[in-house]
């Protein structure tokens, strides 16, 4: 019997497929992060998780800036659970990046890719903060995680990122989710995203 690629269960998108190793990597990282912070997965992994067939090196995750003690605990837990940070082994040094709102990256020990691009956000990053506070839940088997509204993700890729890979990702999302996309949401999100160009 032929089954659809996804269904909606209430407001959760359920993608009907098996996990990949990339999913398991993200699941393991979120399993730790969620004990310390809220988060939002954005960009390439959103497209790949929903069927875009392309390689990727990184998984982008928005995380609100957290206080130093909480980050210290998170960093220690990640290290215990076999992740390493590109930027350094000393938490004081790495926390400086977050204070400057600069991204850091984590991979599994003895591996370079895939990596988590840990993107600190605060209320000054308006478009990012908006998508962070308007998340969409998505599930692959029992792995549930948060992504931006699909319409927001499409427009962000088309208007802000706009590289060949991003345009292809946006086309994939437009087609794969054609049944559920909302014109009203596109209209609502476009000015918020265009603000980022100013």
């Amino acid at each position: 019997m032929i089954k659809k690629g996804y269904i909606l269960e209430g407001d959760v998108i359920v993608v009907d497929r098996d996990w990949t190793e990339l999913d398991e990597f993200v699941k393991d990282f979120l399993g730790i992060l969620k004990d310390y912070s809220d988060y939002l997965i954005v960009s390439g992994f959103v497209s790949i998780a929903t069927g875009r067939t392309r390689g990727t090196e990184d998984v982008d995750i928005l995380v609100p800036v957290m206080d130093e003690n909480k980050f210290r605990d998170l960093f220690s837990e990640l290290s215990k659970k076999d992740f390493w940070c590109y930027q350094g082994d000393e938490v004081d040094e790495v926390y400086g990046y977050l204070q400057r709102i600069e991204n850091i990256r984590f991979a599994r020990k003895n591996e370079m890719f895939p990596n988590i691009e840990f993107i600190p956000i605060n209320k000054n990053r308006k478009a990012k903060y908006f998508e962070f506070t308007h998340s969409q839940r998505i599930k692959i088997k029992d792995f549930e995680f948060k992504i931006p509204p699909i319409e927001f993700e499409i427009l962000y890729k088309e208007i802000i990122l706009a590289g060949d890979k991003d345009i292809a990702d946006a086309r994939h999302l437009r087609e794969f989710f054609a049944d559920i996309l909302s014109k009203e949401k596109f209209k609502e999100y476009e000015p918020i995203i265009r603000e980022e160009l100013k």
């Binding site: 690629g5 993608v15 990949t20 190793e21 875009r52 994939h172 054609a178």
Partner: peptide
């Protein structure tokens, strides 16, 4: 091709098996 594949995938989840193979081969 991206559009064609996405459309086919929307209607038939079997195509995810190919995607899994490609992603894991890269990793």
């Amino acid at each position: 091709y991206v559009v064609l594949y996405a459309r086919a995938l929307r209607e038939n989840n079997k195509l995810f098996e190919q995607q899994k193979k490609l992603i894991e081969a890269q990793l």
